[in-house]
Design a protein around this nucleic acid. Structure first.
Lengths: 183, 183
DNA sequence: TATGACATGTAACTAGTTACATGATTCA
DNA sequence: TGAATCATGTAACTAGTTACATGTCATA
């Protein structure tokens, strides 16, 4: 009855920011780089979206400015309320999993482009997958994972990426052969 | 110089609608069902978004109303210009492939939820994948693919779904074991 | 006659993108 | 001193979601 609930929308970016800041405080600029690197295969954010979200999260007191540096740099850290919200999202909220796969959408309609273009596209998809696979393997080898479980979940995600790209490459090879059946 | 170019934004839904109508004319209601069925694992659209898009595509003369039925039903078909736009999208435009994977985003931050919840979540991901895998296999068996290449690209997409869900299931099993290492 | 499937639409919102705009600091 | 990097922000837009609103037709 008297409980006032601050409703936070179930959006990826918001919780991605909370998660990254939970891991380690940082500025908008820092986070942008972390999005490009660590989250590159998982979630995308533009600079403009990030700064907007940081503002909203600060207003909602889920994060706070912990220090200000040169060039107007503001370092944010997650608050107790933010940590609670992150936990709530992970525990209580059912993942949305809205499918939105442009690569496959194109495959579905490839008939309208002709066989040559279809093969070309599928070949390209395989190449992209292979390149990403190589990138992930290099990333894996470049990281000192240490002993314990410090990077446990990061490793799970990396392994997922590896399996995904391997799958995609294998499928693309097979698909190209399907479109070009020894005719 | 004098060339007037009708700029159509590079959005999934628009081209998904064109592709579906290229395949076979239909009403908004028809398309909504086709989105849920054929496109279920590839692209999501709400009813409201669909009708809006149909209106815009009609204004742009990429589709047209070919007949009106009972209950205000309007059947749309793709026009020559629409077919050309579909081809252009497939041939000229580079896929965006903006990553946005909520499942994996959660895995990345699972440390904030505790091991029990982590195992629970990963197990659930595996189960969802397995169920989808079964669904796709059933779908495959229920379809009369005929002889030739009529359903070539549809089969490629279905096979992708099968490989993807199999990968996800295998990964989830492995991941659960990683979080619960015989301690 | 009432239920369920068919069928279309609008309003208000949230999320995400693109382009612009500004300025500080470091270092070659 | 000029280029690269660091650093933040706004305005105008497009895309997508949720909730509402309306009405028809078949059939049990």
């Amino acid at each position: 009855m008297s409980r006032v609930e601050c409703r936070i929308s179930d959006v990826g970016l918001r919780h991605a920011v909370l998660g990254l800041l939970d891991d380690e405080p940082g500025s908008g600029y820092d986070l942008l780089k972390r999005f490009q690197q660590a989250m590159g295969n998982i979630w995308h954010a533009t600079q403009s979206q990030l700064y907007g979200e940081l503002g909203k999260l600060e207003t909602a007191e889920l994060i706070e400015v912990t220090s200000e540096g040169p060039r107007g740099r503001k370092e944010y850290a997650i608050t107790a309320a933010g940590r609670e919200e992150l936990r709530r999202w992970l525990v209580d909220e059912k993942p949305a999993m809205t499918p939105r796969n442009e690569s496959l959408l194109r495959v579905y309609f490839l008939g309208a482009a002709g066989r040559d273009r279809a093969r070309e596209y599928l070949t390209w998809l395989g190449e992209v997958a292979q390149a990403r696979e190589r990138g992930l393997t290099e990333l894996d080898e470049s990281i000192d994972w240490g002993e314990g479980d410090t990077y446990l979940y990061g490793r799970l995600v990396l392994e997922w990426g590896r399996r995904f790209t391997a799958m995609q490459r294998g499928w693309a090879d097979w698909a190209v052969a399907q479109v070009n059946p020894s005719v």
